[in-house]
């Protein structure tokens, strides 16, 4: 092989450069997202129902499928005029992102944004829907 010295050194430099992001972050795990559900409204609901899991559907479902649920809610409310959601546990909820979801999850920064920022997704809910006033959670 001609110029093997230069080529091998070149390949090594390239590999070091290309894999920099990987070895640079070894052992430095990014902080895991920890969405908080410690708002006054949620605490009140937990005390009232006597359980921790008080969202409209079970926690695991909401974690994985909340976007689908919100889509279904939107279509039901806007197109069918169905503004009442009878959840799988029999409780009923007013279909309303701004006034039902965010009434409990008044800590958008510590709840929504926590995971969305981590996963680098940017849902465009808040260009139209009004975010809860964050001071409320700090009381």
């Amino acid at each position: 092989m001609y110029n093997s010295g230069k080529i091998i050194v070149g390949i090594i430099i390239f590999l070091l450069f290309a894999t920099f992001p990987f070895y640079n972050s070894i052992g430095k795990a990014t902080a895991k997202p920890e969405p908080k559900i410690d708002t006054p409204a949620i605490k009140e609901a937990q005390a009232k129902l006597g359980k921790k899991d008080v969202c409209v559907e079970p926690k695991e479902f909401m974690k994985a499928e909340h976007m689908q649920l919100l889509n279904d809610w939107r279509d039901a409310a806007l197109r069918e005029g169905n503004r009442l959601y009878r959840a799988s546990d029999g409780r009923t909820h007013d279909i309303n992102l701004q006034n039902t979801c965010m009434n409990c999850h008044s800590n958008k920064k510590k709840f929504c944004d926590e995971c969305h920022n981590y996963a680098a997704v940017k849902p465009y809910c808040w260009t139209c829907h009004i975010e809860p006033k964050e001071e409320r959670t700090n009381e």
């Binding site: 559907e57 079970p58 479902f61 994985a64 499928e65 279904d72 039901a76 069918e80 005029g81 169905n82 503004r83 009442l84 959601y85 009878r86 959840a87 799988s88 546990d89 009923t92 007013d94 279909i95």
Partner: peptide, 15 residues
Amino acid sequence: TFLEKLEASTFDKTP
């Protein structure tokens, strides 16, 4: 599993 769980959920008109 998720879809099955949700079969119990329905939409309705507000009384």
